[in-house]
Every structure is written in structure tokens, then in C-alpha cells.
Design a protein around this nucleic acid. Structure first.
Lengths: 214, 214
DNA sequence: AGCAGAACGGAATGTTCTGTTCCACTGCTA
DNA sequence: TAGCAGTGGAACAGAACATTCCGTTCTGCT
């Protein structure tokens, strides 16, 4: 059976393929705005019925998991992409900008806790942490990052930027960039005094990932 | 009828007065953690029954409103308190630290949208904005704040810090302080380049306050 | 041309969750 | 000591939600 090109527009096959994407896009938008949003909201936003959704995912949790895992993979992808950049500081900055622009942090952090994670997600998360470590280490070695900043502080930075949200998505992105710029200016060079408090410990900001104790 | 001292510990009167505070404290904790939390969670946390709650507030919305308005008043209080500080930069920093420590920003911003605001709250909000303007203006005049930062950028800062949250409240406060310090270091002096994008417009970050259009 | 079934929209269903009310009880207060 | 303000917690009604089901459409293959 020929496929007429897998992403072609014609026929039922194309419709289905387009729905695949529409559902994922809608789910991203809806669940990023409110992680507890009802499934029906996703269907409505995607312009499809409930059955189109349940044909693809056994349940809500599976959709959430998929969304989160996709975000995690994107994270790793971006982190690997900037490793080629020779300027360590620029690599870090570009990476953070990309994560902030794509709203990947919310995807991987705020969605956690709404589903039970796979083992593969666990190992991917470890891999991601390793990449972040290296990125920060390089920036330190280049002397461009203030010394009392640790890799897990980047979690603080991303969490801060992801918190900015206004109804218009494009404006949201602009404001987040502005927030990131303020943080970066504070991160570079040595500030007036040392940063207060113990630095965030590894995994401390990912508490939503911990298995529910109830 | 004598009162034995209005906050005294003895008897039914004292019990009631203590419950007043317990309910407000519990409500703050619960609703800050999740603005959509059920009322029963507040009662449980406060260690009281439902009737103790409904005797004081006609409904959930009234409790939320009260919480938010209290936060707004606290905001104004803190802003007025630092006006006496002669060092403009220190005034701004101390103010931000106090707001972050007391988690007042979440109270006034994240709770909005869960109730319909009073007119008095509207005027208080305007008053608060005016105080922020003056605080930033002073810091600018003293040359301690980078020139392309506007008053509404403080909303960005507070939103960022308020987003940091871990299960332990004290640790949360430490991490927020750290986040604030990074932002302040970036805010002081002129950074590497100008801040990107149009600065946040007045009221742009308070969109939750806008009346629901549905 | 004609059939088998993949894909779909959306209403129906059963269940959980929540705001609010109600009632019997307690122990100050006057 | 009589009365009632104050209370705990169960009961209730209705909203919200994930999931299922059924009738329909239209493609892809023979």
C-alpha cells in the first residue's frame, strides 16, 4: 500500500496525520495553560471529536506522558545542538533562550505529577542533567559565569522565566526574554555580593517527579 | 460586657478569636499552594469544622477575596514602610525582599480571577502601583537602577520569584531569595546590552484581574 | 462499481469532587 | 441555671470529568 507521501494532504490518511499533529499542538497549548485542564478542552481546541483523541491515546495520562517526554527529548536535542558552539557563554545563553522560547521547561516540570513516569523518562532526565552540568562547567571554565552559580541554578532561571505568562503567546515570549536577560546580566560577572543561601541541590527543583506518597 | 482582653486565650471567645486566625492562616497556605483547592482542605488544615468557616464567610469566594485584599494591604504597608529609607536602592531591595518573603505577590496576583474584585480593591491596586512607581523613580534618580528598567518590570521580578516553590516553605524562601539576588545583580548597573523587547506595560501582568469575558 | 472498515463527531454514562446546608451537641455568659 | 453563640462533621445537590458507545462518512482496495 503506497502512502502518497506520508504527510500529504489528500484523503483520509492525510486527515489522520494532520489530526495527529493538531491534537498534540492543542494538548500542548491547553495543558501548558492549565495542567489540570479537561480532555474535552484539548479536543475542542484541536477541532476534533473525542474519539479522534481516544483512538490515539488509551487515556489522558498517556497523552500527558507523551507531551512531557517529547519536551524532554527536545530539551536534550537543544542541549546537544549548542555543544558545537565554541563560545561557552554563548552556548549557555542560546540554550536557555531556546528552552524559554519553546516553553519546554513547563512541559517537563509542571506536567510532572500528572502522570506516572516511565523508566525511559528517568534515564532521559539523567542524561539531560548531565548535559546541563557540562554546559555550566564550560561556562565556568571560560570564566564567564559567576563562580557561586551551580548547574541546578539554571532550574531556578528556567522556572522563573516559565512563570511569566500573559494571554498573548507572542507577548509572553517577549516578556520571558526580558526576564531571562535580567537574570543573565545578574549571572554574568561577579555581582555586588555572593548569592545567598545554599544553592539548589540536584533534583531539588524536580520534586514534582517524586512518586506520590498518598 | 467586658472582653477579658480581645485576644485572650480563655473561653469560647478566645477559641473563636483563635479560629479566626487559624482559618486565615490555613487558607493562605492552602490557596497559595493551589488556588483551586477545595474549601474542605482549608477547614482540615485549620483543624476546624466546615461550620466554623461558613460562620465567618458567606462563601468560598468571600474568603478568597479577603485573602487577596489582605495581601494587597500588606503590599501597600511594606511599600510605605520603606519610603523612610534614605538610600533609594536599599529601599527598593528591602521592599522586594519583604514581598518575596511574605509571598504577597502570589496572594495578590495568582488568586485574582478566582473571585470578582471589589471597587475598593481596585483603588488599592492603583495606590499600590503609584507607590511602586515612586520607589523605582527614586532608584533611577539615585542612578542605582539600570535605565531601561521600568516600574512594571518589578512585576516580572516578583512573578519570577513567586514561581519558585518546593515542598518545604523555609527552603522555598531561601531559593526565592537566591533568585531575587540573581535578578537584582542583573538589575543594578548597566548590563552587557540593553534589555530586549518592549517593557511590560502598566497592568499587562495583572491580566487575571480583568473581568472574565465568558 | 461496491464493499469493508478505518476514522470520526458528539451525545450518553457513571463516577468523583465540591460548595453549601443542616442538625445535634457543647460549655461559656449573664 | 437557662439560653444561645459557636462548633464538628455528616448529608445533599449539582457540577465537572474521563471514558464509552453508536450512528455516520468516506477512503482505499478489489
Amino acid at each position: 500500500m503506497d502512502d502518497h507521501g506520508s504527510t500529504g494532504l489528500a484523503g483520509r490518511r492525510g486527515q489522520a496525520a494532520r489530526n495527529d499533529a493538531a491534537i498534540l499542538d492543542a494538548a500542548r497549548e491547553v495543558f501548558l495553560a492549565d495542567p489540570k485542564a479537561p480532555v474535552a478542552a484539548v479536543a475542542e481546541r484541536a477541532g476534533v471529536g473525542m474519539s479522534a483523541l481516544y483512538r490515539r491515546y488509551p487515556g489522558k495520562e498517556d497523552l500527558l506522558r507523551r507531551l512531557c517526554h517529547d519536551g524532554l527529548r527536545r530539551w536534550i536535542e537543544e542541549a546537544e545542538a549548542v555543544e558545537a558552539e565554541p563560545d561557552a557563554w554563548k552556548a549557555l545563553v542560546v540554550f536557555l533562550e531556546r528552552i524559554v522560547d519553546a516553553d519546554v521547561h513547563s512541559l517537563t516540570v509542571h506536567l510532572a505529577g500528572t502522570f506516572t513516569p516511565t523508566e525511559e523518562m528517568g534515564s532521559d532526565a539523567r542524561r539531560a542533567a548531565g548535559l546541563m552540568d557540562r554546559l555550566v562547567e564550560r561556562a565556568h571554565a571560560a570564566g564567564r559565569l559567576r563562580r557561586d552559580v551551580v548547574a541546578d541554578d539554571m532550574g531556578l532561571v528556567l522556572e522563573s522565566c516559565a512563570a511569566i505568562r500573559v494571554p498573548d503567546p507572542e507577548r509572553t515570549q517577549e516578556l520571558r526574554r526580558r526576564c531571562l536577560a535580567m537574570l543573565l546580566a545578574g549571572l554574568a560577572g561577579d555581582g555586588a555580593g555572593p548569592l545567598p543561601g545554599p544553592a539548589p541541590a540536584p533534583g531539588e527543583l524536580n520534586w514534582r517527579w517524586r512518586r506520590r506518597s498518598g
